[in-house]
Design a protein around this nucleic acid. Structure first.
Length: 213
DNA sequence: TTATAGATTGCCT
DNA sequence: GGCAATCTATAAT
């Protein structure tokens, strides 16, 4: 990545993630997911997240205890936890809380900022067909979609450090959003502990996936 | 050893 | 609104 661009994106420090996943989920809204590749740079603003609280959250992967799949969750904060779901899709999480605690944040939607044509190619979409908001939405609006757009896979990205600016995948800081621009809703697609409001969205942002309330 | 549900998406009607 | 795609962990046989 050119040094000019490198300077624009500063990773959040590890202690940002060494906190309650609810707090991290809320504060990750507005921050920037950056994918650095040999000749391209992909970036998107995080507009939707979900908190998973760890061992005591029935909806969390960690509720089953330590398994080969979820091992990263139990490690240090600020690592990418990537898993495969429904036989088709990857989802990206970031581990929270100190080593031994398994909380995490699921990244559910991005507003594309840079490298839109590369995202379209990764998604199998014609890059010339990105005129309308509805078309742009299909790039990164949804956890499986954003992983495909950013070429995120378990073999490539699981356990990578998102606080390292030299990592191929990291999360950069940005000014915090005011509380009034954020809404908390029920999490999507789960059956256990579905009543808790642990999904956080940027109000009125068209790149949020699913229902707005 | 087999069955099933799941933090999803795209295409069909 | 229904359904196929088809990996992973766990429950049931």
């Amino acid at each position: 990545m050119p040094s000019r661009l490198r300077g624009e994106y500063k990773p959040l420090p590890r202690d940002f993630y060494d906190r309650d996943p609810r707090r991290v989920s809320r504060e990750l809204l507005g921050k920037i997911l950056v994918r650095r590749a040999a000749h391209s740079l992909l970036a998107g603003r995080i507009v939707e997240t979900e908190a998973y609280l760890g061992l005591n959250d029935p909806a969390a992967h960690a509720a089953a205890g330590r398994t080969p799949r979820n091992l990263v969750l139990w490690g240090p904060p600020g690592r990418a936890y990537v898993y495969f779901i429904y036989g088709n899709h990857y989802c990206l999480n970031v581990s929270c809380l100190p080593e031994g605690d398994a909380g995490c944040v699921l990244i559910r939607a991005l507003e594309p900022l840079a490298g839109l044509e590369a995202m379209a190619r990764n998604r199998g979409i014609d890059p010339s067909a990105l005129a309308t908001t509805a078309q742009l939405r299909t790039l990164t609006s949804g956890p499986g979609r954003l992983c495909e757009a950013f070429s995120i896979t378990r073999s490539r990205d699981n356990d990578s450090d998102v606080t390292d600016r030299d990592s191929p995948l990291f999360i950069a800081g940005a000014p915090p959003l005011s509380r009034s621009r954020i809404a908390a809703t029920r999490r999507i697609g789960i059956t256990k502990a579905a009543d808790q409001k642990l999904r956080y969205i940027v109000r009125d942002n068209p790149f949020v996936s699913g229902p707005r309330l």
